[in-house]
Design a protein around this nucleic acid. Structure first.
Lengths: 220, 220
DNA sequence: CGGGCGGTTGAGGTCAATCAATCAGAGTGG
DNA sequence: CCACTCTGATTGATTGACCTCAACCGCCCG
């Protein structure tokens, strides 16, 4: 890892609180170094030592695993305020990359777990990630392509706070690898949603959820 | 929940240690009441209060969620030694049922989290569940039916310790709903594996992994 | 022996994948 | 400013893996 090269960066203390502020009490306070990653830059790789924990300040991060033949599954996207990179063991079980340019706070894992107060927050955070992962299993295991895409858009919309306008930080390929689909299927599904007046797409990175309720009905 | 009705049951202290004894240090010590559930009996339902944590003594347990139209996704199976039922919030986000007859230790969640020592173990346990869930996302999102079934058999085989002989506590429907397949596909896949001399099936609940290495190659 | 449940097998259909071509937008250089 | 390229997205045609529907089997139990 190239953490050392971030020595020049300034210090942050919980610079950007999560947008989901109902959960303030379980907010992880990361004290560490801010580091900037460029688009597609590796934050950590599978199998590396898991000595650091991260928190997104700006941009987005994807965690993923790749099979020998190249198939990729994105476990989750992390948005500003999200913590990622906590592991049970000493090794990374998945890799992480910046989706676009991203600023991330880096903290020593040992420092965090030493403070029991922070340890408790990390624990709650792990359970929240578990929830998301379990939701994702249901989505990928039992939902149709349309339902998966609808769910993805609504989830992103909720997490970004915000109104009906939605900016997608990630490519179609990223979305496909997140939802267990192909890029073509994602594309087709989005155009179909446009034809059904569920969304408006402008420039492939901007989606307007014109009929959010109808979209929600698609995936119960 | 029908926990109260278990008052007659005797007390256990960590009656059955996990078979995966490399992780002894993170072993959750549950002190609680042993309760017997019969086949398909509900242990807890979605939306109920999450006041208890459980540990399997004998038998097997499935946790699952069901969509409005009946599609079911099994999140995981819990085998003797496994802890389940820990939640972030106050409500159950999934249901749990006994796969066959099962004995389970029931402990008050509040009691467990009060002891910081136990809290730490629970935390590690949550991360282990997270690992399993993330593995499952990869399996269900990106692997073929054959790869999924192979993975399921090998995983079960590892967890039960044991040699090449494997007893399946769950039905084909359970396996299908776990792997995101249909019962027919699971059945076909198993017979194909038999034809390929990868496994021997006797009586639909007993599988012999005759060529485990070849089976492992199927899913990398 | 018969009935029932769970599992297997078969035939046909469907949804998403694959293969392939085209298109749109962002840079790049002349 | 306009070709040119390159990358990512869209669209179309076809294939294929898995699902659906349906029949059958086999084991268990009365």
């Amino acid at each position: 890892m190239q953490i050392q090269s971030a020595a020049r960066a300034q210090k942050y203390e919980n610079a950007v609180p999560s947008l989901l502020s109902e959960n303030v009490e379980s907010e992880v306070k990361l004290i560490g170094i801010a580091r900037t990653f460029t688009k597609d830059q590796e934050i950590f790789g599978e199998g590396e030592a898991a000595d650091f924990v991260y928190k997104v300040v700006t941009g987005a991060v994807r965690s993923f695993r790749i099979l020998a033949d190249g198939r990729r599954q994105i476990g989750d996207f992390y948005l500003p305020g999200d913590v990622f990179g906590m592991e049970l063991g000493q090794q990374r079980r998945s890799a992480a990359e910046a989706v676009g340019d991203a600023v991330v706070i880096v903290a020593r894992r040992a420092t965090l777990t030493a403070d029991p107060d922070n340890a408790d927050r990390l624990w709650r955070h792990a359970l929240r990630e578990l929830q998301r992962s379990q939701d994702h299993v249901l989505t990928v295991g039992r939902r149709s392509a349309t339902e998966r895409v609808a769910r993805f858009l609504l989830d992103l919309n909720e997490r970004r706070g915000a109104g009906v306008m939605l900016e997608l930080p990630m490519s179609r390929q990223d979305i496909a690898d997140f939802l267990g689909l192909t890029i073509e299927t994602v594309s087709r599904t989005l155009t179909q949603m446009q034809l059904d007046d569920l969304i408006e797409v402008s420039g492939c990175r901007h989606v307007r959820l014109t009929r959010r309720a109808a979209l929600a009905e698609l995936c119960e």
